[in-house]
Amino acid sequence: MADSAAVAGSGRPSRAGVAEDPVRVWRGLAGSHVLLDGFHALKHALRFDARIPVALTADKPAVLALAEDLAPDVTAALDVLLAETDEVTLRALVPRLHPTAVAALAVRPSRAANLGVLERAPRSAPVVVLDDPRNLGNAGAVIRLAAGFGATGVVTTGTLDPWHPTVVRGGAGLHFATAVERVDVPELPAGPLFALDAEGEDIRGLEIPDDAVLAFGSERSGLSAGLRARADHLVSLPMRPQVSSYNLATSVGMTLFHWSSGRPDRLTARQPEA
């Protein structure tokens, strides 16, 4: 982090010994780096060791005061990392500026590194699979949930990019707390595949193992035929008659809670406030 902080906080010396303009650094990296949109995304990325070459704000004292109030563990890092610019410039760089008036660019973890985490055995927590999801915000909410429960990772099938800026915004920067990748169904991580389906066995009578792969269908069409055919178990969530379905993130949260409920040691360590 120290090298990255030097870029944004005090400037990175050029070959001529002149510090680089953080706005120029941003423009050079935009499009190839992950946009961290808002204080909470930047906070979580810092906590989970993201590499952040540049971070900008229109009001550094206000951001540092917010950090001191909500996340004092990252205040010192933010003080070094943040560079201040005017709001007009910042809005030109980030048209949908977060109300906290802070944004940063981070290095996306390599696909090889994420796949290595997903394929490691034995696993101590499940992998969540979103089968051909369509809603970017829902995908982000799932990643945030999975990170909170300590899931090994979240993988998507289909065309949705799980690192799309809207997904990252919905995930509040917690992509860096778990392995997030897009794969094809034949490339899913090894492990018993539990697929959520209305016709499946009631989850309350099942024990979900730590190395499970938990698959959830798209919001509109459910599980694809290919994934359903690969499932070792079809699982249903309890639901009142005549209620059509749960929101995708709600279904993931209920399933991960069921997995974690018999393992109190998984989440007992006190974590910083979200």
Rank of each mutant, 00 (worst) to 15 (best):
D131H: 13
A112W: 12
G116F: 06
A141C: 11
A151L: 10
V180C: 12
L105Y: 15
G137Y: 09
R91N: 09
A215Q: 01
F194P: 00
V213D: 01
E119L: 07
T159N: 06
E219D: 01
T159M: 07
W163M: 05
E181M: 11
L136H: 12
I203N: 12
H98W: 06
V180I: 15
V142D: 05
T166G: 01
L174G: 03
A104P: 01
V167M: 09
P165I: 02
D197I: 05
L206Y: 10
G148F: 00
G148P: 01
S218H: 01
L115K: 04
D161L: 03
P165A: 08
L136E: 02
V167E: 04
G148N: 11
E187H: 14
R108T: 10
R120P: 00
L130E: 04
A121K: 09
R96T: 11
A112L: 14
A141E: 13
V155T: 12
T156P: 01
G173C: 07
T178P: 00
F149G: 11
L174S: 08
A101K: 14
G222T: 07
P133G: 13
A92C: 03
W163Y: 08
P189V: 07
P122I: 11
G200Q: 04
S124G: 11
L160I: 13
A151R: 10
I143L: 02
V167Q: 04
P165Y: 07
D202N: 15
T157V: 10
L105K: 13
A212E: 02
R108C: 02
G116I: 05
L145E: 01
G171I: 03
A104V: 11
V183F: 14
A92T: 13
A106K: 12
D161P: 07
S221H: 13
L115R: 14
V128W: 07
G217E: 02
R144N: 00
W163E: 08
E207I: 07
P133W: 13
T178A: 08
V129C: 15
T100G: 05
E119C: 10
P122A: 10
A121P: 01
G173R: 08
V185R: 11
D210L: 00
V183T: 14
A112F: 12
A121C: 08
G158W: 08
A125V: 12
A177E: 00
G173L: 10
E199V: 03
D211H: 04
V102L: 05
P126T: 13
P192F: 05
D131P: 15
I203P: 08
S110M: 14
T166N: 08
A106L: 12
G200E: 04
P99W: 08
D161Y: 04
V183P: 01
G217V: 00
A92Y: 03
G200D: 05
A104E: 03
A177Y: 02
V168C: 10
G217T: 05
A190C: 02
R108I: 05
V183I: 15
G170L: 01
A212K: 01
G153D: 09
L223T: 06
P192Y: 05
G137A: 11
D184H: 15
V213W: 01
T178N: 04
R120G: 13
G170Q: 05
L206I: 06
P186D: 14
A172S: 15
A195Q: 05
T166A: 14
L206V: 04
G170R: 03
L118F: 08
L193E: 03
G217S: 00
I208G: 00
E119K: 12
H164F: 03
